[in-house]
């Protein structure tokens, strides 16, 4: 468990961090380190330099304004899971963060590191996708915003350029009539999501569904949205039967499998976990 040699930088601002990244094409951003350092120790990754953004004040903190919640990239899972603001505004995100790894991991791992790493079996990508999160990114040319649906490109690939840093995540605050939830089936070995379902539903004045989103971690090479399920729910009364019926149409074309759960079985699990998440979201709406 001895990584290859690397340089270490600890910038004090986002600008400085971006500058270092621009000058070091083989550099990697280090946040909580709980994904990057293990792969370095296994020598599956050997970055020439690490840019430790853990001390940049601008990347910390959770703030609420104008109907949205802004979470700094270096906010830890523990902070998110235990934030009253997140629990109220985006319960699916708090639930997802609270189920990542173990206590030690949750005290170190960060939302920015998680989403940038884009491990499809991690818990936050589906939650970010279902909640319609916006990701704020800074690079040498300035800042830009990317929607979660455009951010996750493929297995551990995102819309981030090598010299860009994810600085924060913006999540809409749930309005009256909207509920969200995250339900996780833990992989028995890794503890990652073998199947994780993030659901958001909105009920109109009459109680019927006016909007829905259901997204999954762990079943495909990226977090995926089950748009056909969401479409099937809109206009329904969100009864258990309506949810079961909508989820029955679930199909994940590129489902992945491993020795614990084949692609086909994961599809079946996704129906069960999707329905669980939807029911809880409905009850909160």
């Amino acid at each position: 468990m001895y990584p290859s040699k690397f340089d270490y930088h600890r910038p004090s601002s986002v600008q400085e961090a971006v500058q270092i990244l621009s000058g070091n094409p083989d550099a990697k951003v280090l946040a909580g380190g709980h994904s990057l350092i293990p792969v370095m120790k296994l020598r599956l990754a050997a970055p020439a330099a690490l840019v430790d953004i853990g001390r940049i004040g601008a990347l910390q903190g959770i703030s609420r304004s104008n109907g949205s919640l802004r979470i700094g990239a270096c906010v830890t899972y523990h902070e998110i899971a235990n934030s009253a603001d997140v629990q109220a505004a985006a319960p699916a995100l708090a639930e997802a963060a609270g189920q990542i790894g173990d206590r030690q991991v949750r005290y170190r791992g960060t939302i920015g590191g998680n989403l940038s790493h884009a491990d499809p079996a991690s818990d936050l990508p589906a939650a970010a996708l279902a909640l319609g999160a916006t990701l704020h990114v800074t690079g040498p040319g300035g800042s830009r915003s990317v929607s979660a649906s455009d951010f996750f490109v493929d297995l551990m690939m995102t819309a981030l350029q090598p010299d860009e840093i994810l600085t924060g995540v913006e999540v809409p605050v749930a309005q009256a009539g909207t509920g969200s939830a995250y339900a996780k089936w833990e992989h028995p070995a890794s503890g990652y999501a073998l199947c994780g379902a993030a659901a958001v539903v909105t009920r109109g004045a009459g109680g019927s569904c006016t909007g829905a989103s259901l997204c999954f971690n762990g079943v495909s090479s990226t977090a995926v949205a089950a748009t056909e399920v969401a479409a099937g729910l809109v206009g329904s009364d969100l009864s258990d039967a309506a949810i079961d019926s909508a989820v029955g149409n679930l199909s994940i074309p590129d489902a992945t499998g491993d020795m614990f759960a084949s692609a086909g079985y994961r599809q079946e699990l996704a129906k069960v976990m999707g329905a669980r998440a939807l029911r809880t979201a409905r009850d909160r709406a």
């Binding site: 296994l42 992989h187 028995p188 070995a189 890794s190 503890g191 491993d258 020795m259 614990f260």
Partner: peptide, 15 residues
């Protein structure tokens, strides 16, 4: 194939 603890499932206390 089960060459790391990511793939080899040692039971955890909460199991």
């Amino acid at each position: 194939l089960s060459g790391t603890m990511l793939d080899y499932a040692v039971p955890k206390a909460h199991f």
